[in-house]
Design a protein around this nucleic acid. Structure first.
Lengths: 223, 223, 223, 223
DNA sequence: AATGAATGAGACTTCATTCAT
DNA sequence: GATGAATGAAGTCTCATTCAT
């Protein structure tokens, strides 16, 4: 509770000048965080790099954590916008197309600024969990709503859970694939595979129509 | 390179007494990390709680980061053991059974010490990435080997990628589900759902035989 | 190279307040160094004695060594000023008078703050070698220039070397004499003796005119 | 008083094994001191490099300072031996020859292990002052005795002071010349010059016989 | 005699934060 | 509003030294 209060920016910058200052501070925070890591990201350095005095920094951010929280907020807003846009566009599209668009958007989102994304996730995730969870929940709801509204019949009965599984899986694969993959497989392939994963999950035998890609079963060696 | 060297324990404790010391230090580290967070986890506090002098701590760990790295190593060893055991046991089991056992093991692994697991992931993941990636890669290889050797024919052609997708998806769902779920769905359900996800992905229409669980498609509202 | 940079004061104090702070810090450093020695001269004690916070100390000095280096710089500036003044005054004086003035100045310089001088030389000389050498070189050049310009003919041909020998000799005698002498001979005598040393070296038989001081040779006992 | 007691080696090593240990420790001390400086010369490192346990080190040396004191003692013994030998050899030699031999020996002494010598002088001189002064005093006495006993008549009346001046001057020139000279003049020249300095000081017009070297006076420019 | 694990005081240094200007 | 000097608690880490084995 108290922390929530403490983490909110001290004041919303209403004038253009102030907005620029805040921008510069966040940009500096992001830069130092991704280049040097959390431990080296001191408020003094951030202020210096942002070209403002340390006093000014504390005028807009009540403490160090607020810097990262604000970064997460930005991230959250951008992600949400991107996914929302996609979902709206795909509202009436057939399921396979919608799924592909969704996965594509998710991958895009992770490609936007991978280094910062990674740094946030690896070093200060705990400061952004509220945003992350909120985002996750929102996306789940959006997916659930979509599934509910689509015309095709699907296999999973518990839509809430299905949404959760889908969103988590896609997010994770995109995340891991983009950040830690040894580049041994391309995005294109990953995209295809994720679509298969989801569509088979949702449609079962109904699926398997896309032009030939995986028509035949691969024989197991041991058979 | 150098950092990797720097993070390794200074010396392996050979005597019983020393092993206990190291154990106590790691236990204390884990405790403080999960109760108070990374920023509050100072080497002095760790030493104090472990009941050893700060000098002794530095005899076994060259710096603060090494503490967390060692924690990750432990975690890595335990996870690997658990999964390996499962994979071996299931070597000749039919695919659905094997999948369920694997997913179960994964969930177990995350249930073992969720608080610590969460703290490690949210606050110091960057210190354990090497271990995380190594673990991930190893598990992927194990899964790939299993898929290669099982008798049943499966849909995905690129086994390497299929393994990656499966491992990532399961890991993520387990992780997210356990840590952030509002307890609105039970583990049992999650387990079932993940099995469906995987088996449909692997077997397609070949699946859908398990006694009645999801036999009929759910009609979409909009239809 | 880098170390040289690292030893320079972090920022030049421009305001009066800051200058006083720096002054106080250096005064405290000098005091503790000479009373307690290098090992006992901790930055915390220095700050405390200077009446400033440890943080302020580090605002002006990047590390402990910089304190001593700064002390050497002061010393260097003072010495140089004193000697320069003397040399200028004596520019047109006859050689014996000039020599005496120079030696006198050198002794004065060592008498100024013998305890500090001694502590610097005995405990942290390595931190001031740059300044010491620079000072030495400058003084040598000044002496050389003087020798070059004086009207009297002198014996040594290599003026550069002669200057070096003279400067070193005088410096050392002054140093050793002042610091370690058991007071068994007075400064007055030492001054006379050094003048003799130098003037005989420079003038040979041309010298020996000063009223009676050493006119006759002392007979060796063994003769 | 107490310090003198504390600085003496705890026990004289009587057995061969012990002597080797002490030797190894001192060798290690010297090595680390000259390579890394006093601050980095920790007793633990010394012990490790000497190949003995830290416990053994403390069996032979009561504390860290004793290591350096012992180094000074070695140095003192060697220097004294070298100079004594020279003085004895030159007991009956004519003054110019004796002087040259003495200066030569002094230069030799400084050439023996310049790096260590320099490190001792620049970083821990205060731990060896007793030895340095004793050495100085002894050499002064030796020189004084020589001067007293030589057959030639000399100019200075106060032999004690003359000795002091000579010893200091030679030591200093040798020291400075060897350690900090930019190699712009050779030892040979320095030797000659020092001999001139001393002999003119001692003999005045009586000198100036050595083959032609400086027979004529150099005219001053301003004349 | 030798060992080296253990100790813990204390060194250096950073950095979030305040506040007088 | 802006500045940045000043603060000082607290952090990381070293190292001389001891002592049980």
């Amino acid at each position: 509770m108290e922390s929530e209060i403490k983490l909110k920016p001290r004041k919303k910058p209403r004038q253009k000048r102030s907005k620029e200052t805040v921008s510069a501070i966040l940009e500096a925070t992001a830069h130092i965080l991704q280049e040097e890591g959390y431990d080296k990201t001191s408020t003094n350095r951030v202020a210096k790099r942002a070209g403002v005095s340390i006093g000014s920094l504390y005028q807009y951010f009540p403490n160090k954590e607020a810097l990262f929280t604000a970064l997460f907020e930005q991230h959250h807003v951008e992600m949400l916008a991107l996914l929302q846009e996609t979902m709206v566009e795909m509202r009436d599209a057939p399921l396979p197309e919608a799924v592909r668009a969704y996965v594509h958007a998710m991958i895009e989102a992770h490609t936007h600024n991978p280094k910062l994304h990674r740094a946030l996730m690896e070093q200060v995730m705990h400061l952004g969990i509220d945003y992350i969870q909120k985002l996750n929940a929102t996306v789940c709801l959006m997916v659930e709503a979509y599934l509910e509204s689509r015309p095709e019949p699907i296999l999973p009965k518990n839509l809430k859970m299905a949404s959760f599984v889908l969103v988590s899986a896609v997010e994770s694969v995109a995340h891991t694939g983009l950040l830690y993959s040894d580049e041994s497989f391309a995005m294109e392939e990953l995209l295809d595979e994720l679509c298969d994963l989801i569509l088979r999950y949702l449609l079962g035998e109904q699926y398997e129509c896309p032009p030939g890609s995986h028509k035949e079963l691969v024989e197991g060696k041991a058979s």
